[in-house]
Amino acid sequence: MLTWLQRDSLDFPSLDKALREPNGLLAAGGDLKPERLIQAYRHGCFPWYQDGQPLLWWSPDPRTVLFPDELHTSRSLQKTLRQGHYRVSFDQAFAAVIQACAAPRDYADGTWITTPMQQAYLQLHERGVAHSVEVWNNDELVGGLYGLAIGRLFFGESMFSRADNASKVGFVTLVERLKTWRFVLIDCQMPTQHLHSFGARPISRDAFADYLRRHLDQPSDANWLA
């Protein structure tokens, strides 16, 4: 039975209560206030819903993750990185990045990054929890991504690209930076061929929860504005 969250409580049901079909649906309801969102990621779930639906919380099994040491870059992407056509920055245009991620896409009907979701993650950015990666061609924003950093874990949310390989350059630059900052895992949530091409792979929900327990409260060397 699906659990409905109460607005006066930040508690989530145990991850083993998540449904098998649809895979990982854990709870519904509640709100998007920053405290609940942070608790959700610490608990091992994330919000994902469309306009017209109730607020839904997910913890799929298996979970798609990328270990920084296992990053794979193709030869063509390595060449693009060496050419240096793009400039990559961090936390310089969070609002613009999340708005671009929410824009309509040819392969999708609607967006899950609703206006309330954008506002909620902007609040997390203001608290220093949510971060963005920007990819520039001169002064034009041509790609990027955003997510949350808690302890030594990065929870990826969405990316966009307006130029060839722009989001890939941003993602690889982020992973390499996270590696130097002693991050141990990047949560990719759901499987895609795009993520698998970088070395992302599935792990069990129990294994993911173990990483949460061991690394959420461990300090990193992150310096997002460096």
Rank of each mutant, 00 (worst) to 15 (best):
M1E: 09
T3P: 02
R7L: 07
D8C: 10
A18Q: 06
L19H: 14
A27R: 07
A28S: 14
G29Y: 01
G30L: 00
D31V: 02
D31R: 02
L32M: 12
K33Y: 03
K33H: 12
P34C: 07
L37S: 03
L37C: 08
Y41R: 07
G44M: 11
C45G: 08
C45W: 09
F46G: 02
P47Q: 05
W48Q: 06
Q53L: 07
L55H: 09
L56N: 07
L56K: 06
W57S: 00
S59W: 05
P60D: 09
D61T: 14
D61Y: 08
F67A: 05
P68E: 10
E70P: 00
T73D: 02
T73C: 15
T73L: 15
R75A: 10
L77H: 03
Q78T: 10
K79Y: 13
T80D: 03
L81W: 02
R82I: 10
Q83D: 13
G84N: 11
H85F: 13
Q92C: 07
A93Q: 09
F94K: 01
V97W: 01
I98T: 04
A102R: 05
P104W: 13
D109T: 12
T111D: 11
W112I: 08
W112S: 05
T114A: 12
Q118T: 11
Q118K: 13
Q118W: 01
Q119R: 14
Q123M: 12
Q123P: 03
Q123A: 15
G128F: 02
V129S: 09
H131Q: 07
S132E: 04
N137R: 11
G144K: 03
L145S: 08
G147D: 03
G147E: 04
G156S: 13
M159W: 01
S161M: 04
A163S: 13
S167N: 03
V169Q: 04
V172Y: 00
V172K: 00
L174V: 06
V175Y: 04
L178M: 12
F183G: 00
V184H: 09
D187L: 05
L195G: 01
L195M: 14
F198H: 06
A200I: 07
I203W: 10
S204Y: 09
D210T: 15
Y211K: 06
Y211A: 03
L212H: 10
S220M: 07
A222V: 12
A226D: 14
